[in-house]
Nucleic acid binder design. Structure first.
Lengths: 125, 125
DNA sequence: GGAATAGTTAAGCATGGACTTGAGTATTGC
DNA sequence: GCAATACTCAAGTCCATGCTTAACTATTCC
């Protein structure tokens, strides 16, 4: 059982533009919650919720010293998603999805397309 | 202006588990809308909406011949997301996120940390 | 000790998106 | 031509999620 839900939580975290902006900000160095909240036109609490989502799926890490919480990128955080994509790109780039076409092309008999059928193809009707 | 919205639409498409399952199904070969709808316990129309979302962001491609629409994986569809991740993994793996720490360590003046502050760190309060 | 600072939590509202229903269109088989 | 098939579209419901407000806790400065 591969942890399907890990990919799910990472994608749910990344789908929100604000959280991607937070990630980009943190990729330029650590920041406190206040520093992260400041550029966004939203409340402290809202940013905090985003940070919790990012931390819950392992994309960032945070540490509280005194009353200040400092957040930073978790270096390997995107790895599971990168792996997920890699698993799906390799078969796709081998053109397994075109297997049907390839078989049709290598078929010695040309009756793959019956002359009676009018194969008009209307993309995106 | 890099097309920010392309990543956005790909992530929005992938965040839905049903759509990821459809992608996995299509990675094993092309399928018609009916064939795709059959294993999911949902209506034809719902699956169609998922397919439209997947096609709109370039993850799949479809072609209608007669009354049958056949869908297949778009080989390069995940490339923009893979690139997006790669851009963010490289800086993170260079530990740019620890730049602040490195600067503090190399800073000759120790006033970055007042000796009065009691630095107890309580992770995850 | 008391005020200011930094963050935390909970409750509630509002929007967006997934899904359904139901009606409609185009194509195929007889 | 007519019925069945395969899909398409529009409208409406429902629930998850982002955001706000408001009250609360912990820490630091004076």
């Amino acid at each position: 059982m591969l942890n399907y839900s890990e990919i799910d939580s990472i994608l749910r975290a990344l789908v929100e533009p604000t959280r991607r902006q937070i990630l980009d900000r943190l990729s330029r160095g650590p920041a406190t919650v206040s520093q992260l909240a400041e550029p966004f036109g939203m409340t402290f609490a809202a940013v905090l919720q985003h940070l919790q989502a990012l931390e819950a799926c392992g994309l960032i890490r945070s540490e509280k010293i005194g009353r200040v919480r400092t957040c930073r990128i978790e270096p390997g955080g995107l790895a599971p998603l990168a792996d997920w994509i890699a698993e799906r790109r390799i078969p796709a780039e081998r053109h397994l999805d075109r297997l049907g076409e390839i078989l049709a092309e290598t078929d010695p008999s040309p009756k793959g397309q019956s002359p009676k059928k009018n194969q008009q193809k209307d993309e995106q009707t």
